[in-house]
């Protein structure tokens, strides 16, 4: 298999696994299978785009900043999926899809949405770091 494919696949698996654990222990209710499939595909393609970047392959000193940037892009795309599902497909009120995070008040919009945004980005970054560490060729 191509290295980029293997790395992207690793990122997708790790991102999904960490997110599953997060949902299992810290959110209520559990997310749907569709959600995890969407997340898997999205993280795979965003990771593939990241690993295909010329500046990434050129042993750039800015690699870590690029990872963070792509993590935030991934997180923004996940939020876009949530909002598109709410408003476009299910036609339910804005923000009603997201599960509760244990310990974070839902009405604290800044903290609640910030936690989701940072969380999704962090899971993706963990995936990239694992892929970089374990997928060599």
């Amino acid at each position: 298999m191509d290295k980029i494919f293997k790395q992207a696949l690793t990122v997708a698996i790790v991102t999904d696994a960490v997110d599953f654990l997060f949902h299992f222990f810290l959110t209520r209710p559990m997310e749907s299978l569709t959600y995890f499939v969407i997340k898997f595909l999205l993280s795979f393609f965003v990771a593939a785009a990241l690993f295909s970047l010329k500046s990434w392959q050129a042993q750039s000193s800015k690699k870590l900043s690029i990872v963070v940037l792509f993590g935030l892009i991934f997180s923004t795309l996940m939020s876009t999926y949530y909002r598109a599902w709410e408003l476009g497909e299910a036609r339910v009120p804005f923000g009603s899809r997201a599960p509760d995070i244990i310990g974070i008040a839902r009405d604290n919009l800044f903290l609640f949405s910030g936690a989701w945004w940072l969380g999704h980005a962090m899971f993706f970054i963990i995936g990239v770091l694992v892929a970089r560490r374990f997928v060599k060729s």
């Binding site: 997060f22 810290l26 995070i101 244990i102 310990g103 974070i104 903290l111 910030g114 936690a115 940072l118 969380g119 980005a121 962090m122």
Partner: peptide, 9 residues
């Protein structure tokens, strides 16, 4: 990120 997630929980 860990501060926000673990701390807030």
């Amino acid at each position: 990120g860990l501060v926000v997630l673990s701390g807030c929980s």
